[in-house]
Amino acid sequence: MSLLQVNNLSIAFGGLRAVDDFNLEIEKGELYGLIGPNGAGKTTVFNLLTGVYKPNEGIIRLDGEDITRKNTIEINHAGIARTFQNIRLFHQMSVIDNVKVGLTERFKYSGLEGVLHIGRYHSMEKAMDEEAMKLLKVFDLDMERDTLASNLPYGKQRKLEIARAMATSPKLLLLDEPAAGMNPNETAELMDTIALVRKEFDMTILLIEHDMKLVSGICEKLTVLNFGRVLKQGETKAVLSDLEVIAAYLGG
C-alpha cells in the first residue's frame, strides 16, 4: 500500500481550475519531486493535501486512511507536516521554542501542571528540550538554540522550518520550494540536509521545486504539473528526457 494516494483531485477558484484531475502515489521512503512552472498549481496541491483548501472532487488517503475532509490540524496529527514557500516561522520565539511548538502534541501535560510548574511539567520539559536539541543538531542549529528565529540568516530559517515540521513526527514531509531564495552554496547544503533527514528518520518526502536541475539530482520520481494538470509522471530520468516537459518549461 502506498503511503500517500491521491485520486482525481480537483479544485477551482472561480473559473480557474487550479488543480485538475490530479493523481499521485508515493511509496514509503521515497523522495518525490513535484515540479512545474510558476502558477502551475504546486502550492495548491500542498494546500489541498494539508486541508487548507477543500477539494471540489477527489480523495486523499494517507496510509490507507481517508483524510480528504479533515482539517489542517487533524491532518497534521494524522501524519503530514509541511514547510511554506514564503517562510513562516514563529519569529518572536527562540529557535528551540519553535521546535518545541512542533513537539506540543507529543509531550503532554495538563494546563494546570504547566501554570503551576508541578507534576509532569519538569520531566516533560526536559524530555522536550532533549528531543528538540537532537533535531537542532541534525540541522546544525544547536548553537543557535536561544537565538530569535527572526534573527537567523535566511538559509537557517529554511532549515528551522524543516526542523519544526520534523518535530511533529510526520509520516510524510512536504517541502514547498525549500531552496527558494538561496545561493548555490546554501542550496547544496540544503540538499545534503534533505538527504540526511531522509536517512536519519527514514522519512518520505514530497518536494516542490521550481529548478529542474536541482530536483533531478535527488528525487527518484517526478510529477510535472502545468496549468493544474499532470503533464508527466514517473521515474526521474524518463520524465526529464520527455521533450514535452522541456517544451512546457521553455514555453511556460
Binding site: T50, F84, F90, Q92, K100, T104, V115, Y121
Partner: peptide, 30 residues
Amino acid sequence: VVLNLMNSRDGRAIMAVRDNSIAAEASGIN
C-alpha cells in the same frame, strides 16, 4: 500564573498562534 504559562507547552502554543497562526495550524496546534 502568566509567567509560568509563558514558559509552558500551552504558553508556547499561544505565542505560536500570535506569531503565525497558519504555521501553528500546520504544526498541529489548535
